[in-house]
Nucleic acid binder design. Structure first.
Length: 367
RNA sequence: GUGGCCAUGGUGUAGUGAUAACACUAGAGGUUGUGGUCCUCUCGUCACGGGUUUGAUCCCCGUUGGCCACC
């Protein structure tokens, strides 16, 4: 079954991705709800922002609330009151970026829990099972995300492990679907992840091998980890040349607004990033420059709302923004909320920044 | 009026006879498959005047200002 319909390739790719919990217009951005909540927002607010999908993380959910709870609560959708699609990251990235004490084995990876210090081990199979229990619409395979820069040898070895894991993931997924008797129409999508650092040979090999295994979509991983913009675009170009046109491409962890625009023009369809929500909590708010198009440098700026200059600023964050924050509140008031550390500040700021990102995506869907 | 104590960035406090430390605040940056995080940098004639000394923010005297106690 083809779950992805490509509507246009003029300029860049525009399409629709079908999942068990509904269709999503591409290219799209996924607000991050790592532990089952987009920080400071509820499901209703996300709907009003017209977010079509959110992202959660297996690594975090396994630890808290734990799979027992999620099973008894009939999955993550019911648990958190979100009716739309959910993509779950496998936790590969987190193990390598957050956990200090980890050991790699041929079988999988073992690490020390951030929450209670206990040892947790993940395998490609257990991560698939966890995501099925969570009830994810788009399941990501377990992978290893190498740091940048890294040597060719390291990247090659890392990639070999990721490929092994990918094969096992696919096999286990197919077997589970059969065992559970899930009909094709309600099956979650399974995505493979291309790695290979910034080495063309490895990137090409990685993409070809992933295609050979066969996935519903392909993620381009290992980007947005500190490499320069031009290099990132290069890597993206290598991969999109090899990956099949009729399958969605997910650019993991990307990125800043200009990075997303670059990647969409480079042929990517899906994105996620902590930036809009995290920066909102730090009082860094996005303001669109209406005189420039999104392909021009400087099409937005970031203001630090906590600064004194906004103490008496009666204007909304962004004069042209249609979000509820900008329709209702002044910069002056939002600055005040930040300075008294009122939780409302985080909520209003998060709404605004997500609105900025999601509007950007809507623009990209119609260009 | 007399006696005692004190005077250090925007604020509150350290400290030493030679390079003035810390925390907030304020200003400039950073954060890419989530740290409401953390980091980096910037902001001082050490109240004023004199003296001792190679050298004083520090020791001495005075001035001004503040706090406390007693008449």
């Amino acid at each position: 079954m083809n779950t992805f319909k490509l509507l246009s390739e003029k300029g860049h790719r525009i399409g629709i991705l079908a999942t068990p919990h509904g269709k999503i217009h591409t290219p799209f951005f996924m607000p991050i709800a790592t532990r089952g909540a987009v920080k400071n927002l509820n499901a209703d607010e996300l709907h009003k922002l017209k977010s079509e999908i959110i992202l959660s993380n297996t690594y975090h959910l396994i630890q808290r609330p734990g799979l027992d709870v999620l099973k008894k609560q009939k999955g993550l959708h019911v648990f958190i009151g979100w009716k739309g699609p959910i993509l779950t990251d496998s936790g590969g990235y987190q193990i390598f970026s957050l956990s200090k004490f980890r050991t790699l084995t041929r079988d999988g990876v073992t690490f020390t829990s951030e929450i209670d210090g206990s040892r947790v081990s993940l395998t490609p199979e257990s991560v698939i099972d966890a995501q099925l229990t969570i009830g994810s619409d788009i399941i990501m395979v377990l992978d290893e995300c190498p740091p940048w820069p890294c040597s060719y040898e390291f990247a090659k070895k890392s990639l070999e492990r990721t490929l092994q894991w990918a094969m096992r993931s696919k096999k286990h997924f197919e077997r589970s679907m059969k065992k559970r008797g899930v009909p094709l129409s309600t099956r979650p999508l399974l995505f493979g992840i291309v790695q290979g650092s910034t080495y063309k040979k490895l990137r090409d090999a990685s993409a070809r091998e992933m295609i050979k295994i066969g996935f519903d979509g392909y993620a381009i991983g290992g980007l947005a980890v500190g490499e320069p913009r031009a290099l990132r675009n290069k890597v993206l170009e290598w991969n999109t040349l090899v990956l099949p046109k009729e399958k969605p491409r997910y650019c993991m962890g990307v990125g800043k607004p200009e990075d997303i625009v670059d990647a969409v023009r480079g042929g990517a369809d899906m994105f996620d990033c902590v930036i809009p929500t995290r920066e909102a909590r730090h009082g860094r708010l996005y303001v669109r420059n209406s005189k420039k198009t999104i392909t021009q440098d400087g099409f937005y700026k970031i203001i630090r709302i906590k600064k004194m200059v906004f103490a008496n600023d009666k204007k909304p964050i962004d004069m042209h923004c249609l979000c509820t924050t900008c329709q209702t509140y002044s910069r002056s008031y939002i600055r005040h909320l930040f300075s008294i550390q009122e939780g409302l500040a985080l909520r209003l700021a998060t709404i605004h920044n997500l609105s900025f990102y999601l509007s950007l995506m809507r623009e990209l869907q119609t260009l």
